[in-house]
């Protein structure tokens, strides 16, 4: 008799406390934010913070390994990243976001809240620059905001641009269009994996990372690439941009 009564009390206690335990578990997770920044190396004055100022013909680059730097500006910068994830110390992958569209002219696109992430030790932040060919198909994302801006014609392989980087060089009226994407259906998207040291536990609070794109580095290391137009069907150029992008275009910094 007493045993049954104690059991009843225990069950009632468990029924009440189970809800509280769930809530406490949620609280211990940290919220992860991302900011997207873009920089250029200003020559000869390298004392500035190199933060990109759109539509300013002040940035310098040495194309084709030239000693004489060339002025250039950025007027538009749009790009897609996908398969955004964190890798934990045990090798498991924690997916964060499928696809994200960055428009340098749209401030709201420069921050991304990825919600809560579970307690764990994370060693790498990963993303794919552009879209994998398995999903990079014409009209595959008609309801996404990037559909009209980033569409890549079927004549040249179909799908979506990875990046549209546009501006002037030499002078205000000479323009370049660095448009990368699945030229003639070949997949030139690439993975970027950046090492991080992030131990998320209940006391850490919100976390903020900054992913920076060093725009100059698209045009050098290992390939010196001159400003040019009409590269959407130039498979050699697309491969060169891919290689440069994989090398040192992106840096990541933990803000907190």
């Amino acid at each position: 008799m007493k045993i049954i009564n104690y059991s009843s009390i225990l069950i009632i206690f468990l029924s009440i406390s189970s809800c509280l335990i769930e809530e406490n578990e949620t609280i211990t997770n940290a919220s992860l934010d991302f900011s997207f920044s873009h920089s250029q190396i200003c020559l000869p004055d390298t004392s500035t913070d190199n933060k990109l100022l759109l539509d300013k013909l002040i940035y310098s680059l040495s194309p084709d390994g030239s000693i004489i730097p060339e002025l250039y500006s950025v007027k538009n910068l749009n790009y897609l990243i996908s398969n955004i994830s964190l890798t934990s110390s045990d090798g498991s992958n924690f997916p964060l976001e499928d696809i994200y569209f960055v428009d340098a002219l749209n401030q709201t696109s420069l921050t991304l809240n990825l919600g809560e992430i579970p307690n764990n030790i994370y060693t790498h932040f990963n993303f794919q620059f552009g879209l994998d060919n398995s999903i990079n198909l014409s009209n595959n994302f008609v309801n996404e905001s990037f559909h009209t801006t980033m569409a890549w014609p079927e004549m040249m392989g179909g799908g979506y641009h990875y990046m549209k980087l546009e501006g002037a060089y030499q002078n205000d009226s000479t323009f370049y269009n660095t448009h990368t994407g699945p030229s003639m259906g070949v997949d030139y998207s690439f993975m970027v994996s950046k090492e991080i040291a992030l131990n998320v536990d209940g006391d850490l609070g919100d976390i903020s990372f900054d992913l920076n794109m060093i725009i100059d580095n698209w045009y050098k290391n290992p390939n010196d690439i001159s400003f040019a137009n009409a590269i959407m069907m130039d498979m050699q150029k697309q491969m060169q941009f891919k290689m440069n992008g994989m090398t040192d275009v992106f840096t990541i910094e933990l803000n907190k």
Binding site: N139, T148, A151, P153, M156, M233
Partner: peptide, 24 residues
């Protein structure tokens, strides 16, 4: 069609997709 949809004519960057416009 080929001129329109390649950088030869480069019409598609503004008049792209099945809607033939970019809302910009």
């Amino acid at each position: 069609y080929a001129i329109f949809n390649t950088e030869k004519g480069d019409c598609f960057h503004c008049h792209g997709t099945e809607m033939f416009m970019d809302n910009l």
